[in-house]
Design a protein around this nucleic acid. Structure first.
Lengths: 153, 153
DNA sequence: CACGATTTAATCGCGTACAACATATTTTTG
DNA sequence: CAAAAATATGTTGTACGCGATTAAATCGTG
């Protein structure tokens, strides 16, 4: 099972590392979720809902498809999530007159106004990553590359 | 909102970076899930179930609590998951006679035998990270540090 | 020894994730 | 132009994640 005395690669060690990387990514995603939860609870958003709002705050109105591409989510996840955001009065949904297949998601006043509110509270925890900007940027790049490799199979 | 002309940090840029890091971690976790899914489907495991099996293959018998600590999961998640693994005949569960509060999870023959099977198939995709060992190790360390910072608040 | 506090799992409810399927609306093509 | 293929969204079923609650076993202190 182990490639004992080769001068090249040690498969078992590689497996161990990959396992640790799986765990690290998995657990870090959960850690983000938990770190943000107490803050998001105050405004009644879940973490995935917050990510959708981040996209909308940055880009404005968007079709469901595009939001899905940004967050790597499909309609099976987004449809009920967006329905809840709509019921909370944060977004509006309307068929695009140019293409009735598409549903354009837009911010309501309440939804747009929430940006400042959340942003203020969030900056408290913004430093919680404990990394300086260069480190964050580098980590982001590594993850994006890793993700691209995984997606490309 | 923006610290306009300070010689120090630019908060908006920092926010953008943090947002990108959220997304990167979130999307990379999903990417792992998806990359492993076609392989795990063949043996009837989900990705979280696979992570539990990895822990058991490495450590042998463990109480539920310890598995939860390894994977950062609580009993609300693990109980039904372990029940499914038990129904699939991969693990056994028994109260610890020394401490009836604890449930010791153990591998069945079938569960232990699955390691080779999965390991063989998995090594095909093992290289999919596209990183060499040093890079994987470094990424793992950064993520662990990030996670520790997030968890510490 | 007793009784309250702590520890460990299980259960329940809500909200994701995602495959598979259903529906409606373009777009493509014969 | 009509039938077929492609596109965009929604629905359903299964399986996480996790907070809150419950129940049982153990521990600590008087």
């Amino acid at each position: 099972m182990t490639d004992k005395v080769s001068g090249q690669i040690i498969p078992d060690e590689e497996k161990r590392l990959e396992r640790q990387l799986c765990f690290a990514v998995y657990a870090t995603a959960h850690a983000f979720n938990r770190a943000y939860k107490p803050i998001l609870d105050r405004v009644g958003l879940t973490y995935p809902q917050y990510l959708v709002m981040l996209v909308l705050w940055e880009k404005g109105c968007l079709p469901v498809k595009t939001i899905g591409e940004q967050l790597d989510l499909d309609s099976g996840t987004l449809s009920p999530l967006l329905k809840r955001l709509e019921q909370a009065g944060l977004i509006g949904r309307a068929r695009d007159p140019k293409d009735e297949r598409q549903v354009i998601v837009s911010l309501t006043e309440k939804g747009a106004g929430m940006q400042c509110q959340v942003s203020t509270i969030m900056s408290a925890i913004g430093e919680a990553t404990g990394c300086d900007m260069d480190e964050v940027a580098s980590l982001r790049d590594r993850l994006q590359r890793l993700r691209a490799n995984l997606t490309a199979e």
